[in-house]
Design a protein around this nucleic acid. Structure first.
Ligand code: ZN
Ligand code: ZN
Ligand code: ZN
Ligand code: ZN
Length: 291
DNA sequence: ATGAACGTAGCC
DNA sequence: GGCTACGTTCAT
């Protein structure tokens, strides 16, 4: 009740469409089989994407127009296939969408209705980085134990159940954000650093650098650190000419205000979720109080 | 493992 | 309705 804050609920029917996002010949499922579909969040809450906070340095910045992703944008003369945000604008604290609600009680975050530190915590929405469920910690049955809060991301933790599971079987996944280096799960490498003189460091990368690991853990990390030869990384050009996806829309590289694609957008609706995770503890199972 | 591609969630 | 860009999958 009392949940009508935003009108942007959009359609949630296509919940798992993006799981076969690229490439599947729209009719058949991947060879990866379709039998793991899952059983996690699908039941009640639709998957929630995080979205930019709009307040951090990165969010306030404007597109650099020179990074890899900017160059891909149609507005900068690119093909617009990549559809990623400017590197310099990678939000350093992506937030839960405003439409997010607790999987248990169905309500939004209510942290502002109280000022106790712990009170806030129990009323705010927390998203588990492992099972992705979003809940009010206070709505959990088991509360004392162990939700491990993730300081890197707002409203992110490892719910008690996943945390327990992790103690015996390691499988973290962390939210995506592969291009926002400071965030968990980032695929970004340190940046190449100084290309002559202009070293522009994305906000999202700064934190990571300062938090770099000077002291290695005892024997936790991978003991491998082979000296990579930078020359070996060269990629042949023939590889670049291979793209097999959809090559079309030659369109001129002229600048345009608004480019609109055809209407071939809302076409197919298929579902099938083929996650890799092998086995995630589904927190919705029973950790919650009752029905 | 890494990067390209793309459907569509989220927001205006 | 249009735009941005997240999160997943495909191709290397
Ligand atoms: Zn850029
Ligand atoms: Zn931000
Ligand atoms: Zn709740
Ligand atoms: Zn969890």
């Amino acid at each position: 009740m009392a949940m009508s804050a935003s009108p942007d609920e959009e359609d949630y029917d296509s919940e798992q469409d993006q799981n076969r996002a690229v490439g599947r010949p729209k009719g058949k499922l991947g060879p990866t089989s379709a039998v793991k579909l899952a059983a996690n969040r699908t039941t009640a809450g639709a998957r929630r994407r995080r979205t930019r906070c709009r307040k951090c340095e990165a969010c306030l910045r404007t597109e650099c127009g020179e990074c890899h992703f900017c160059k891909d944008m149609k507005k900068f003369g690119g093909p617009g296939r990549m559809k990623q945000s400017c590197i310099m604008r990678q939000c350093i604290a992506p937030v839960l969408p405003h439409t997010a609600v607790c999987l248990v009680c169905g309500e939004a975050g209510k942290e502002d209705t109280v000022e106790e530190e712990e009170g806030k915590f129990n009323l705010m929405l927390m998203e588990c980085s492992i099972c992705n469920e979003i809940i009010h910690p206070g709505c959990l049955k088991v509360r004392e134990s162990d939700g491990v809060v993730n300081d890197e991301l707002p409203n992110c933790w490892e719910c008690p159940k996943c945390n327990h599971a992790g103690k015996t079987g390691k499988q973290k996944r962390g939210p995506g954000f592969k291009y926002a280096s400071n965030l968990p799960g980032s695929l970004l490498k340190e940046q190449k650093v100084n290309r002559e003189n202009k070293e522009v460091i994305p906000e999202a990368a700064k934190r990571k650098v300062e938090c770099e690991e000077p002291p290695r853990k005892k024997s936790e990390e991978h003991p491998k650190k082979p000296p990579l030869d930078p020359l070996l990384r060269r990629k042949s050009e023939d590889v670049l000419l291979r793209r097999k996806r959809k090559f079309e829309k030659p369109q001129e590289p002229t600048m345009r205000k608004r480019l609109k694609l055809g209407k071939e957008e809302k076409l197919f609706r298929k579902k099938r979720r083929v996650m890799e995770g092998a086995g995630r503890p589904d927190c919705a199972g029973e950790a919650f109080g009752g029905t």
